[in-house]
Write a protein that binds this DNA or RNA. Structure first.
Lengths: 194, 194, 194, 194
DNA sequence: AATGAATGAGACTTCATTCAT
DNA sequence: TATGAATGAAGTCTCATTCAT
């Protein structure tokens, strides 16, 4: 029975992920989700109390996926450079996988406190994981550095989400780029004599 | 007449900026904006064709403000370091000024192509300004570097918007921090002997 | 303009009175009322904040009609007997006029505090009017007597509402009956010797 | 088995009486009743075909209780006065016992023909019992008199149901009051000389 | 007999937008 | 140009009832 319930629970989450991701929260109707999941409208409400809660559940599952893959990967990296590269690879690949679900990140319900809390907590956890890496490596001001690194990655993700021509090649290049920039700063080739 | 129109036009934009910024697009009613602007609901439609267009106009005015202040400031900076610091200062102070209008950035209309285009164009212009600075200074891959720098700043702005305890002091510290990180990379205090 | 508003206001009240009265609160849809009033659904909400408030407004208008006709009639009656007869006549005729609107009294919204308050206040006013009559005539315990008299009338109204064969003749007979019973008690024709 | 069935049947009726009485028909969910009865939702439908039928069954049990107590009491009363007093005592005490179940009388399902029939039949039976008393005592127009007497009682019950300050004392006073009023009419203390 | 997961109909209300004045 | 009364589309959620187990 728990298996059956699990099935339906997962079917709803999957359908909601697909539709919220491609059409956005406001343009997805509960009945669409039910149809795609192959169940009745009312059944959705047996598993999720409201449309907002369903969106939150979709997000939470995705956040947890992100974080567990991140932590697993970090455990298998050793040097600071390796870890920074893994963080970049993970961040960019995660959004690359979701390039057809952009609305999940940009068309979420507007005033849902629970989702807000969830996002804050997610960001905090992510930040903390990077913080641990930097702190262990002896980087001063590890929190500020963590934010800066994540910020770079989050900006580069935009092209991945919205520029359909980005390839796996570009990803690899960007991974090397940000980790190098973060560690050594930007190189200046021919600075004009002042 | 154009003056009168200008007055009302501006009054509507100001009212919309205040309400969209503090309550978000979806929780602001056209009638609220009309009330705050001291005019009738129907009059709003003489100046703006739709609620979305009004939001776009509010955003556009703000974008232009951002860009013109940026360009003016850059003209008065000389060295790369000075320019990077100005970019950071400008970015962070801009959001500091708007810390009570956060909904403008996080609760925009969800599916408006015009606004999307406007935001893309704004980002492109912003990016281009930074690109010019880096290119002139001889930085290789200036576009990637521009994105990375803006990304860092955009991450640091989050605390400014959501952490009510951030002060002007913190701003200055962050300005120095990002420009230094960008130019020289992160310092590692006690790197294990390799 | 106030006339136009009055027109629509009244049109809605009239349509609601007709439909609530014949089909009951729960079986009447706002859209039915709008259709009958010849306006759009949304317009109903410009005049009445909710379906419950509309029902309350219909009731209130009817209550006020009842009370004003009662008071006017009482002013034109002199002796106690005349006044009691007028109260009976007024009560029974009022329901006789509304024999096709029974649902107004038996299928009201179930949990609306405003309506409850309105009904209490109406009953209080009615009771008070009868109280004044009895008190002035020197009847002891005027409040209890008022309640008893109204109770008799309210029981007799049931036949009027639900027995389609009741005629105007019956009404007159009942009016004489209750006023006489109230004043002199029931006659006992042949009491068995105990 | 019939005992087991009887147990559950009664458990459901008791739970329904409690919840319908305190919250009303529309605000009581079948699942609430099942929970209170300690059984599963579906089981309710093995004993009662619908929510309306369950309400009807609750009412019918209560009606029968009312009528059997009434008839038993009347058999033990002799004179007309005694019988009238017993009717009043029984009516008022019945509602006094149910002062925490007022919703049973004022928030019944709105459009259920079966319940309507049940109520009509109940009222008819009640009326008939009073009719018999009056007829045997030689009161003319016994049906009208029966209705009037019940009407008085039914009005006085309102205070019992809604005025939390009514005491057992008040009950006794009212019993004497109505029986006296019915038999002798209202006394007028200072009638103007005719 | 007992369960409880699944069903799906049904209607209120909001608010951006229009248009007659 | 300005008004604001009128419009009407659109979608969430509840809960009585069913039926496979």
């Amino acid at each position: 029975m728990s298996e059956v319930q699990g099935d339906k629970h997962k079917a709803i989450l999957d359908a909601a992920f697909a539709l919220f991701g491609s059409q956005g929260f406001y343009d997805t109707k509960i009945s669409d989700i039910a149809d795609l999941a192959g169940i009745a409208k009312g059944t959705v409400y047996l598993y999720f109390k409201s449309k907002e809660k369903l969106f939150s559940a979709v997000s939470e599952r995705d956040f947890n996926d992100f974080l567990s893959r991140l932590n697993t990967g970090l455990e298998h990296s050793e040097s600071l450079k390796e870890q920074l590269q893994f963080i970049a690879k993970h961040h960019l690949e995660y959004y690359y996988e979701r390039k057809d679900h952009t609305k999940l990140f940009f068309m979420a319900p507007n005033n849902d406190p629970e989702l807000m809390g969830l996002m804050k907590e997610f960001l905090r956890s992510y930040m903390d994981a990077v913080y641990q890496v930097l702190d262990k490596a002896g980087v001063p001001e590890p929190m500020l550095h963590a934010k800066a690194y994540i910020g770079m990655l989050d900006q580069l993700k935009m092209d991945i989400l919205f520029d359909r021509s980005i390839t796996g090649e570009d990803l690899n290049k960007n991974i090397l780029f940000v980790s190098r920039l973060f560690m050594y700063g930007c190189p200046i080739q021919d600075e004009p004599a002042s």
